[in-house]
């Protein structure tokens, strides 16, 4: 039998988008340190349900760190204290007996709360819809080896494409800015020859990003520090310069 710990949880409870919320306290007792954070919440929820309460709503799905569904803010840190780790892969061994954990949803105007710890991140989808694609239709593709891609570019594109769209960058940013998410998208496509066609892509995505009510980037780099997939802020720089170039081209073409 592995070690167990006791924790005090202060969880944000909010019945719906338009109702006010507040922190509620729960005692998490005999928590096996081999549990994941979400399994700990499962255990609490089972207790709440059997106690005729309303279980804590929290988003989660794959529980292996790739779908990007899960994520809450634990003691001020999105996805909790462990670096490069999504909430579902955070294990309770990272906490100490007697700890108090304040658990809050992602906070951003662009991410309204749906219930408790569940927020609406569809703003990120809408940004992608504004320009996050190459435009190729099914059947149009040339033979895959028609264009060789330097391995270095392909690797960098992959680094950026590793983004899971969880929104932790927005949650961590003091300005609730989505620049790391959008920057990753821009780099992913922009670094590959296949993605370089559309000259308004970045402008369109940035317009949508602004319209959603995300804040402005002030280069605090909290996003990079929090990102569970280690997406680098150089992607933001790439977006900044691509945007500038697109603006110039747009002016020239108009």
């Amino acid at each position: 039998m592995s070690k167990t710990i006791n924790l005090t949880l202060k969880v944000w409870r909010q019945a719906g988008a338009d109702t006010p919320g507040k922190l509620e306290t729960y005692n998490a007792t005999n928590i096996d340190v081999e549990m994941s954070f979400l399994e700990m919440l499962d255990v609490i929820n089972e207790e709440i349900a059997l106690d005729d309460g309303d279980p804590i709503a929290f988003d989660n799905d794959c529980r292996e760190g790739i779908c990007g569904t899960c994520g809450v803010v634990v003691n001020g840190s999105p996805h909790g204290p462990q670096k490069s780790t999504t909430l579902c892969q955070l294990h309770m061994r990272k906490f100490n007996d007697g700890d108090t954990l304040i658990i809050e949803p992602w906070r951003a105007k662009a991410f309204p709360v749906i219930k408790d710890l569940v927020v609406d991140r569809s703003a990120l989808d809408r940004i992608s819809q504004a320009g996050g694609y190459t435009g190729v239709k099914t059947g149009q593709a040339p033979e895959a080896h028609t264009i060789a891609v330097p391995k270095a570019d392909s690797d960098k594109a992959m680094d950026a494409a590793a983004c899971i769209g969880c929104g932790a960058c927005v949650a961590a940013c003091p300005n609730a800015s989505a620049m790391l998410y959008v920057g990753a998208k821009v780099s992913h496509l922009g670094l590959l020859p296949q993605g370089k066609l559309d000259c308004d892509r970045v402008i369109n995505m940035v317009n949508q990003m602004d319209a959603e009510g995300f804040g402005n980037c002030t280069n605090t780099y909290e996003c990079e520090a929090t990102c569970p997939k280690d997406i680098n802020v150089s992607n933001i720089a790439r977006m900044n310069r691509t945007h500038l170039v697109e603006k110039i081209i747009q002016r020239k073409n108009s």
């Binding site: 001020g76 840190s77 204290p81 520090a225």
Partner: peptide, 9 residues
């Protein structure tokens, strides 16, 4: 409510 203990800003 909580401040980020892991802030690197």
């Amino acid at each position: 409510i909580a401040t980020n203990q892991n802030s690197e800003q």
